[in-house]
Every structure is written in structure tokens, then in C-alpha cells.
């Protein structure tokens, strides 16, 4: 088990955004976290990547409780959360270089990472001049360049054109296959992750309704899993 949460809740003031989440992400899997807008996906992913602490409960990473100021685990995690932030006046190359200085661990070369995400020729351009899709690609490069064990991606296909979406899906599989990474990918569009995920968790109004493997789903819903997703979140979602 790569990541496990034990009764994780998150409260803002007295409003419970996440309610006793018990999530299990197997080593080497691509885990798709599905849920409509406002379900709490980003809130959950921030805790899984060690950015915020849960209000209640515990996140376990490789079997150990994850703490936000833990210097040892941070290099083992890579994440893209919501709208990525960069040092905008610096080039893509410089941004990755500074990231690696902080991470201080084994890594791909900056050229390799930029090539993988298709930004080879944009390396010297200031990030301020990047398009939305280019920023998204760079954010993904920054998340995997230090070769983490866990990659947490919050709506990583945002802003990408169809070609970019296809490339990115292939990249996710490559990162899992070639570098043994475990991936957690969130989306509010089922179609975005049903082709890459091994397992799916459905989050709705702060509750994890179910966790199910794609294999099981394909057997039970041979016509496509839209019906399943719709059934789960139907009503007021």
C-alpha cells in the first residue's frame, strides 16, 4: 500500500469539506479520483501530498504517518495542485533547476524532463510568456523530474489540446511503467481518466462513496462506466 488515509476529515471553520475518508492506493497503480466540482478533490490531494494537514485522522505514506514538515518524504512526492505557481520572471529551465536544488535528490536531467513534456524548445523562455497548456506541461515536468515514488496530479489535463491530452495519458503510463511511480489523478470528467486508471475512487460532497478497480467495473458495466458514475453521484451533484 503506497498511500492510505485513516478517517481523514478536513474542516474549514465548522464546515466539513471532507468526511472520514478511508482511501487506499496500491503501489504502482494509477488511481483516478473522480468527483464533481466542489466534491473536495483538491482539498484531499493537498493532504495526500503533504501540503496541508488533516483536521482529523491520519495520512499514511509507505506505512508511515505523513507530516507536513517532514523533510524526508517531500522528495518522494511530486504534485501538481490546482493552478500551478512558478517563478514567472525566470525561464522554464531555471524553474526546474531551482526546484532540483531544493529537492536535493536523484533526478532526470532538465533537458530530459523538458523533452518528455514537449517543451524542449521553450526551455529558455520566461514562464510569464507561457500559454496555459505550456504551464500545465511544465508543472507536470516539475512534479516528476526528481523521480518521486508518488505523483499527485490535480486535473492535470486542464488547458491541454487533444494532442496534449493524448501525450499526457501516454506519459502517465510511462511514468508508472518505466519509473515505478504510483499516480493519483483527479478529474471531474470520467472520460479523462477511465483510459489510464487501474482503480477509481468516487468522491461526492466530501465523502468517498466507493473504491473500485477498473477491471471490476468493465465486467459489471460492459457498455461503459458512465452509468456507474452517474448512479453514484446522481441527485444533487
Amino acid at each position: 500500500m503506497k498511500v492510505k488515509t485513516a478517517d481523514v476529515s478536513k474542516l474549514y471553520d465548522s464546515y466539513e469539506v471532507l468526511k472520514r475518508i478511508n482511501m487506499n492506493v496500491d503501489d504502482g497503480n494509477i488511481y483516478g479520483l473522480l468527483g464533481p466540482n466542489g466534491a473536495g478533490k483538491s482539498t484531499l490531494l493537498k493532504m495526500l501530498s503533504g501540503l496541508n494537514a488533516p483536521s482529523l485522522g491520519e495520512v499514511y505514506f509507505n506505512g508511515n504517518a505523513l507530516h507536513i514538515d517532514d523533510g524526508h518524504v517531500k522528495p518522494l512526492i511530486g504534485s501538481v495542485i490546482e493552478t500551478p505557481v512558478f517563478y514567472n520572471h525566470l525561464s522554464a529551465y531555471e524553474n526546474l533547476s531551482i526546484h532540483l536544488e531544493y529537492m536535493n535528490t536523484d533526478h532526470l536531467t532538465i533537458e530530459e524532463a523538458l523533452t518528455i513534456v514537449g517543451l524542449k524548445t521553450a526551455g529558455d523562455l520566461p514562464v510569464a510568456k507561457f500559454s496555459l497548456g505550456m504551464r500545465q506541461r511544465l508543472a507536470v515536468a516539475r512534479a516528476f523530474i526528481h523521480l518521486p515514488e508518488l505523483l499527485v496530479l490535480d486535473e492535470p489535463l486542464n488547458g491541454l489540446d487533444p494532442k496534449g491530452v493524448k501525450e499526457m495519458r501516454a506519459l502517465f503510463k510511462k511514468l508508472r511503467g518505466q519509473f515505478d511511480m504510483t499516480l493519483i489523478i483527479s478529474s471531474h470528467i470520467l472520460n479523462e481518466i477511465e483510459h489510464v486508471a487501474d482503480e477509481i475512487g468516487i468522491l461526492h460532497k466530501g465523502e468517498l462513496l466507493t473504491e473500485v478497480s477498473m477491471q471490476t467495473l468493465k465486467i459489471n458495466y460492459p457498455d461503459g462506466i458512465e452509468t456507474f458514475f452517474f448512479n453514484m453521484t446522481e441527485g444533487d451533484g
Partner: peptide
């Protein structure tokens, strides 16, 4: 609150 994502992903105490 937004830029925090960046520095909090580094293995360095806040």
C-alpha cells in the same frame, strides 16, 4: 495562500 504550494512542496522547514 496560493504560492504556498510551491515552498511547501520543498523538503525544507517552513
Amino acid at each position: 495562500a496560493n504560492s504556498l504550494t510551491l515552498i511547501y512542496s520543498y523538503p525544507v522547514r517552513r
